[in-house]
Design a protein around this nucleic acid. Structure first.
Length: 887
RNA sequence: GGGCGCAUAGCUCAGUUGGUUAGAGCGCUUCCCUUACAAGGAAGAUGUCGGGGGUUCGAAUCCCUCUGCGCCCACCA
């Protein structure tokens, strides 16, 4: 390979070497050239076995530009470039994840509007603000179509700045493959996949208790929840045993000896929703009471006392009240104990205004009126006041800190509300499917391998199917309608679906087949599903979207299943898992062969970056200061899967390396071209190439295993040795100061190594390598072939070339040290060098004698046999010091 | 409570199936304007490989155990 490109260079020399090489301005020029020449364009004509396809993560454009983008996308880019140079047609798309709640919130904050789906479209609507919304602005209601249009406008702006950054990173993506998750193709594919899930029974709707964000007014999925420690308080409440007088002995903990039953609760406001009491079946304190009933404080509702294994005798009094619904355990109890539903918190997050029918006593009804319409926090305060008044709360509330479920982007705790939602089966309720999905996880090659534990852990711990419907607006609509009966009631069991050729559709605008627009909402007519799909329900189809599933069967067949899914380890439970679920249902296999997990970027103090901490590092300034290549060098030094701190020191090293590549190229090319057919014949030159062979092998193996960092380590280690020792040793000979044969050998070896080095560095430092490649080669280095072994080691298997060069380097270092210790210039002359050592070492020294003499300014080199390698260095007498300056 | 990862020089980290004297960069010290590079070069100092135990001719590496840090999951009355 090296010889081929060398030959090309010699027959047809390119423009040449600048007098003063610089990194300034090369990025802009090269980016333009790559685009013009289509260097990264996917070759559709390549067969599947020649394709390397990548399921690039589509960044959320509503988020800020983050150094984390630079980090992980660089990792993938190095792999893409390696595969391309190895001759693969690399399918490296890019997409913008623009649909979803994150975008809606950004638009709300950026323009001061809020979507009100009950409003009709206003053709004259204009956003009241544009990026500078006053803090006390009032959310201006807009219609759903107006809101969606605003979202499109703002995401378009965001996408432009993302594209700017991503181009600046030198990513070798094929920009002609750009997609967005709200675009026509994504909507079509997302809806098509959903309809097929529906047809096969993998998607279903269910009216069930659902975790619900009362601020965003939408259901959320298990994967989007997180625990936060928040302050709360235990309140000890008295439930009254039926047929037993009120408790007078307030010392007792449980009240079981008296007429009252005491419980501890953190959510006294849910008292009106209480449906039962529960304790552990083995709890002897309460065993006599199982099967009896008690009356709730304040509301005087009769509820049964039951036993269930999930009740913890050590928590509170050991007895709990079950409400519909305070937490997930309540849902379990409600389901397993067949309890009634007494839900009071509605979609608006407030207690129902209607007094519920299960509160029958006049006093209880009056108490309820005190909390009707309140939000949970206010309702709690009022309830506690009422309990204190009635004497049914024992002592003061005892403050605690406890974990509470939040939507990961939410600000108030999730409530549990019974609603009709759409689900996709993900094994959370089906052991067989769960096993199959765990099996899919094992079919993947994980890089690094231990990341598979996180997948297994998550899939094994699922406790429900995947809730995909969201009561939001800027997303892919759930593509179904429902029949209305003669009274215009919705018949959710009569689902109307479009044909696949109609997709994408918006059921709030389009009509089902056989109906007219006038029948929308009318008796015996239809109504569209108002919800959109969870953003993961669409991004779980990125392989299908990027590969144009069903839209372009030839392309899809050539890229799917993809070779590589790169992503962060924090979204294994969401993006990675969801994509496997969809691939399993639709294609009966894994959507990719390799999953490559990147770590997070930590701030320089090794803390996780987050917007709230304000320690997010933006990349633009760093790119300007150290150059893209310098920043990419830092990124590529982060091992796969390992969280890595922002380290400007490493970027500085990267920039230094880029400069060194520039300078050494100029130097080596400056020796002139070797004659046609010249080869490395000198032992030192062959030894260097032999070492290069092993570097090429090491680099290639590392890249094949997705370990870009190790590949970089290999080439970088060799490169500095090459510059510091090898080039120093042979430069005089290469200039032609010895003899022509030696010069030809050195020049051939230098150019062979230079060519290989530039290509080995190309995946990491795409700009500087392409710049220097252009000085003496044709085309882009990124379209050049990945180096292969030069073959010298195979031609002379009996010679240990690497061992032949080590003693020479060692002696050179000893000479340098002697000069440094004598406080002399490295150019100072050595009168005589006596090398003592083993025969093999002395032979190596002898073979490189002239190179050593030139590099060390040594007059006479002698050697004597000895056990270990030592040197006697006789420096030339110091010249007379210059006369001291007068004064 | 379960799982995963990490602990090596002042700092950031390599160290692959156990194998000579444990490495790199940054930082620090010294020297050198040397015609590829002074935004550079040459050299130098710095280590109980977290603690303890075990296997082995030999352990940073394998096993057990303890400690500390980080992450994920579970628990949420």
């Amino acid at each position: 390979m090296a010889a081929d490109s060398l030959a090309t260079a010699m027959t047809n020399p390119p423009p040449g070497i600048p007098d003063k090489p610089t990194l300034d301005g090369i990025e802009t020029a090269l980016m333009q050239r790559w685009e013009t020449d289509g260097v990264y364009r996917f070759d559709r004509t390549a067969g599947r076995e020649h394709v390397f396809s990548i399921d690039t993560p589509p960044p959320t454009v509503s988020g800020s530009l983050h150094i984390g983008h630079v980090f992980s996308y660089t990792h993938t880019d190095t792999i893409a470039r390696f595969q391309r140079m190895r001759g693969k047609a690399v399918f490296y798309p890019i997409g913008w994840d623009d649909n979803g709640l994150a975008t809606e919130r950004r638009v709300q904050n950026f323009t001061g509007v809020r979507c009100d789906p009950s409003l009709a479209l206003n053709p004259d609507f204009a956003a009241p603000f544009h990026g500078d919304v006053p803090k006390d602005h009032r959310a201006i209601p807009v219609s759903r179509p107006d809101f969606v249009e605003l979202c499109r406008e703002i995401t378009h702006l965001d996408e432009q700045s993302f594209e700017h950054l991503f181009r600046r990173l030198g990513l070798s993506v094929d920009w002609s493959l750009l997609y967005t998750t709200i675009g026509d193709r994504a909507r079509r594919i997302s809806q098509r996949a959903f309809l097929r899930n529906l047809a096969r029974g993998e998607a279903y709707q269910q009216d069930a208790p659902t975790l619900y964000d009362i601020d965003e007014r939408t259901a959320v999925a298990q994967a989007e929840m997180e625990d936060r420690d928040v302050p709360g308080a235990y309140h000890k409440l008295a439930f009254h045993r039926v047929g037993v007088g009120p408790d007078t002995d307030t010392d007792t903990d449980t009240g079981t000896e008296s007429g009252d039953l005491w419980i501890d609760t953190t959510r006294p406001e849910l008292l009106a929703s209480c449906v039962a009491m529960v304790a552990h079946p083995d709890d002897e304190r309460y065993q006599p009471m199982f099967g009896t009933t008690v009356r709730t404080p304040l509301f005087d509702v009769e509820v049964p006392v039951l036993a269930h294994r999930l009740a913890d005798p050590d928590k509170g009094t050991g007895m709990a009240m079950i409400c519909t619904f305070g937490d997930i355990t309540d849902v379990t109890w409600w389901r397993e104990l067949n309890l009634p539903t007494r839900a009071l918190i509605g979609f608006d997050g407030r207690f129902s205004n209607e007094t519920p029918e299960w509160i029958t006593s006049p006093a209880g009804q009056e108490h309820y009126r005190q909390i009707a319409g309140l939000a949970p926090k206010q309702a709690q305060r009022r309830t506690v006041e009422l309990l204190v008044e009635s004497g049914e709360m024992l002592g003061d509330a005892r403050p605690i800190s406890h974990p509470v479920k939040f939507y990961e982007r939410g600000t108030r705790p999730l409530e549990i509300v019974a609603t009709r939602q759409w689900y996709i089966r993900n094994g959370g309720r089906d052991a067989v499917l769960r096993t199959e999905l765990l099996e899919r996880g094992s079919e993947l090659a994980w890089h690094p391998p231990y990341m598979q534990h996180r997948y297994d852990n998550w899939v094994g711990g699922l406790n429900g199917d995947w809730l995909i419907s969201r009561q939001r607006f800027f997303g892919v609509p759930i593509p179904v309608w429902y029949r209305l009966d003669a009274e215009a009631n919705v018949r959710y069991d009569e689902v109307l679906v479009p044909t696949e050729t109609e997709l994408p559709i918006d059921p709030s605008v389009d009509c089902p087949n056989g109906f007219t627009a006038g029948q929308r909402g009318a008796p015996n007519g239809f109504i569209g599903d108002p919800d959109v799909m969870d953003t993961w329900a669409t991004s779980s189809l990125t392989p299908q979207i990027a590969g144009a599933w069903e839209d372009d069967p030839a392309l899809f067949a050539n890229v799917f299943p993809m070779d590589m899914r790169p992503q962060g380890h924090d979204i294994i439970r969401t993006w990675l898992f969801a994509t496997i679920v969809r691939g399993h249902h639709e294609h009966g296999g894994v959507p990719w062969r390799n999953a490559s997990l990147s770590g997070w970027v930590l701030d320089p103090d090794r803390k996780k970056m987050s917007k709230s901490k304000g320690n997010v590092v933006t990349p633009i300034g760093l790119l300007e200061q150290y150059g893209t290549d310098g920043v990419r060098y830092w990124a590529a030094s982060g091992r796969p899967g390992v969280d890595t701190a922002v380290d400007e020191g490493q970027m500085k090293v990267g920039r230094k390396l880029a400069l060194k590549i520039l300078n050494v190229t100029k130097f080596v090319l400056g020796f002139g071209e070797p004659d046609s057919g010249a080869a490395a014949t000198a032992p030192l030159d062959q030894a260097m190439l032999s070492r290069l062979d092993s570097v090429v092998k090491g680099c290639t193996t590392a890249f094949e295993g997705f370990d870009y960092a190790r590949a970089l380590e290999h080439v970088e280690g060799f490169f500095w040795w090459f510059c510091d020792d090898y080039v120093e040793l042979v430069k005089a000979r290469a200039y032609g100061t010895h003899d022509d044969a030696g010069a030809q050998s050195a020049r051939a070896a230098l150019r062979t190594a230079l060519s290989a080095l530039q290509r080995l560095f190309a995946p990491f430092m795409p700009f500087v390598t392409d710049e220097v490649w252009g000085w003496w080669q044709h085309g882009s280095v990124h379209a050049a072939a990945w180096p292969t072994a030069t073959g010298l080691a195979i031609d002379h298997p009996s010679i240990d070339h690497v061992a032949a060069i080590e003693p020479v380097g060692e002696v050179l270092a000893l000479v340098r040290r002697a000069k440094t210790e004598a406080k002399l210039s490295q150019r100072a002359a050595v009168d005589r060098l006596v090398v003592r050592g083993p025969a093999a070492a002395l032979a190596a020294i002898e073979a490189a004698r002239d190179d050593l003499r030139s590099a060390g300014s040594i007059d006479v080199v002698e050697h004597e046999p000895a056990g270990t390698l030592t040197c006697e260095i006789i420096l030339a007498p110091m010249p007379d010091p210059p006369p001291a300056p007068a004064g």
